[in-house]
Amino acid sequence: SNREKAKQAFKELLRDKAVPSNASWEQAMKMVVTDPRYSALPKLSEKKQAFNAYKAQRE
Results as ranks from 00 to 15, higher is better:
1 S>R: 12
3 R>D: 14
3 R>A: 05
3 R>L: 14
3 R>Q: 12
4 E>A: 00
6 A>W: 00
6 A>I: 10
6 A>T: 05
8 Q>I: 12
8 Q>N: 02
8 Q>C: 06
8 Q>P: 05
9 A>F: 03
10 F>Q: 07
11 K>Q: 15
12 E>G: 04
13 L>H: 05
13 L>I: 00
14 L>E: 07
14 L>V: 06
14 L>P: 08
14 L>R: 01
15 R>C: 10
15 R>Y: 12
17 K>I: 01
20 P>N: 02
22 N>Q: 09
22 N>D: 14
22 N>S: 13
22 N>W: 12
23 A>M: 11
23 A>R: 03
23 A>I: 11
23 A>E: 03
23 A>C: 09
24 S>Y: 01
25 W>V: 08
26 E>K: 10
26 E>C: 03
27 Q>T: 14
27 Q>G: 06
27 Q>M: 07
28 A>S: 05
28 A>V: 08
28 A>F: 03
29 M>F: 07
29 M>R: 12
29 M>C: 09
29 M>D: 11
30 K>M: 08
30 K>T: 11
32 V>E: 10
32 V>I: 15
32 V>R: 02
33 V>L: 11
33 V>P: 06
33 V>Q: 14
33 V>A: 15
33 V>G: 14
34 T>P: 03
34 T>Q: 13
34 T>K: 10
34 T>D: 14
35 D>K: 00
35 D>E: 06
35 D>V: 00
36 P>S: 06
36 P>A: 10
36 P>W: 01
36 P>C: 06
37 R>A: 09
37 R>M: 01
38 Y>R: 04
39 S>Q: 10
39 S>R: 14
39 S>K: 09
40 A>E: 05
40 A>V: 12
40 A>S: 13
41 L>T: 09
41 L>Q: 07
42 P>F: 01
42 P>T: 12
42 P>Q: 07
42 P>R: 07
43 K>R: 12
43 K>M: 11
43 K>H: 07
43 K>T: 15
43 K>A: 13
44 L>I: 11
44 L>Y: 01
44 L>N: 04
44 L>G: 06
44 L>Q: 09
45 S>D: 11
45 S>C: 04
45 S>T: 09
46 E>P: 01
46 E>F: 00
46 E>W: 00
47 K>I: 00
48 K>D: 02
48 K>P: 07
48 K>I: 12
49 Q>K: 12
49 Q>Y: 03
50 A>T: 05
50 A>H: 02
50 A>Y: 00
55 K>Y: 02
56 A>K: 13
56 A>W: 08
57 Q>Y: 01
58 R>E: 15
58 R>K: 13
59 E>Y: 08
59 E>P: 05
59 E>F: 03
59 E>K: 14
